[in-house]
Simulated scan of single mutants.
Amino acid sequence: MLGISVYFQDLDLDYLEKAKECGAEYVFTSLHIPEEDYSDLNEKLPLFLKTCHNLGLKVVPDVSPVTFEKLQIKDKDYLKLKEMGFEALRLDYGFDDYKIIKELQKDFYLMLNASVVTKDYIEGAKQAGVNLDKIALTHNFYPLTGTGLSLKAFNDKNKVFTEYGLTTQAFVCGDVLKRFPLYEGLPTVEKHRIQNPFVAAVELIHKCNVKDIFIGDSKASIKTLRNIQDYMDKKIMRIPCHLEKDFEYLYDKEIKVRKDQSETLIRLLLPRTENIPVYHNTIRRQGSIIMENVLAGRYSGEVHIAKRDLPFEARSNVIGFIHPEYIELLQEIDGTTTLVFERL
């Protein structure tokens, strides 16, 4: 599942519509950010909720005691939240009473704060009769550079959730508009703060058993949203690259890869062609797109991508290269991936 985030200072209704067209299902919003301007919330919130309802987007508010104050409703008046149109809640903290969780599950899909959920908590929830199928574990995002989780800590936490078959959710940065007031990105994992959000999302899905990806920042590009959705739905990985003129026919094709991938090369399932001339055979840098030439014998015409720097081979023509920003995707390609080369 793909989700975006909306903050009222940056509210853009057109973005909501385009995100839905890309496959987004949820819209996360926080109603207790100290820096947010809530002075015109009475005007913006109804318009926001109506737009999301009309588009079929489920709004997920980050709920804490401050939320009820900002909405000017009675503390813990969840029935009012339901009447306003909220169908899911992200419970930030202070929800250790399983009776409350069970009661809320009657009306809402619940997302619990993954950072405070432990194995003991999950066991207690099971024994109390909480429906774990109607719960997701949502990791925090971290606005300040240096404060995000390490990939190891994140993975260790997720292994516990995976044991119980729980849905895990995490945030990646936006690549159009970072969120105020720091504008440093809102990732869950620190290393993703400086990465392309599509690359970050693929790593979370492929390596960390994350099912749902949310854009934490105010806005991501439509291309990024579509790329993430395509990967989540069909394992299609769209990779910007440059191809030499004679090989531009490889652009925009869905290309399967071999099931038995090697340690150094990604081997593509494309037809081989006999007697490919020797052309531009040079050092094969990481991310090089390679076609074997006539010197490779029956392998002539086979296409590879270099996973790491490789030495010169007379039988290998370098016909293009992957955009450097997407190089790390090469480590996430396996036998189930479908590649699409896109023009830079």
Rank of each mutant, 00 (worst) to 15 (best):
K223L: 11
K223H: 08
T224Q: 05
L225V: 15
R226Y: 03
N227P: 06
D230P: 14
D230L: 10
Y231K: 02
Y231D: 08
D233V: 12
K234G: 02
K234C: 03
K234P: 00
I236S: 05
R238K: 13
R238G: 08
I239T: 14
H242M: 13
H242F: 13
E244K: 09
D246V: 10
F247I: 13
E248W: 10
L250M: 10
Y251N: 01
D252T: 02
D252Y: 04
K253I: 08
K256H: 05
V257Y: 01
V257I: 06
R258S: 04
R258G: 00
K259G: 03
Q261I: 15
Q261W: 09
S262K: 02
S262P: 00
S262E: 00
E263K: 04
T264N: 03
T264D: 10
L265Y: 01
L265D: 00
L265H: 01
L265R: 02
L265C: 01
I266K: 01
I266T: 15
R267P: 12
R267Q: 12
L268I: 14
L269P: 02
L269I: 08
L269Y: 06
L269S: 09
P271N: 06
R272C: 09
E274Q: 11
V278K: 03
Y279F: 03
N281V: 07
T282N: 04
R284F: 01
R284Q: 01
R285L: 15
Q286M: 09
Q286W: 10
G287C: 12
I290G: 06
I290E: 05
I290V: 14
N293V: 13
L295F: 08
G297L: 06
G297C: 07
R298D: 12
Y299N: 14
Y299V: 11
S300D: 10
G301I: 06
E302V: 09
A306Q: 02
A306W: 02
K307Q: 11
L310S: 11
P311K: 03
P311V: 14
E313Q: 09
R315F: 11
R315Q: 09
N317P: 07
N317R: 05
I319M: 01
I319D: 07
F321I: 00
H323N: 15
H323R: 14
E325D: 12
Y326M: 12
E328H: 10
E328P: 08
L329S: 02
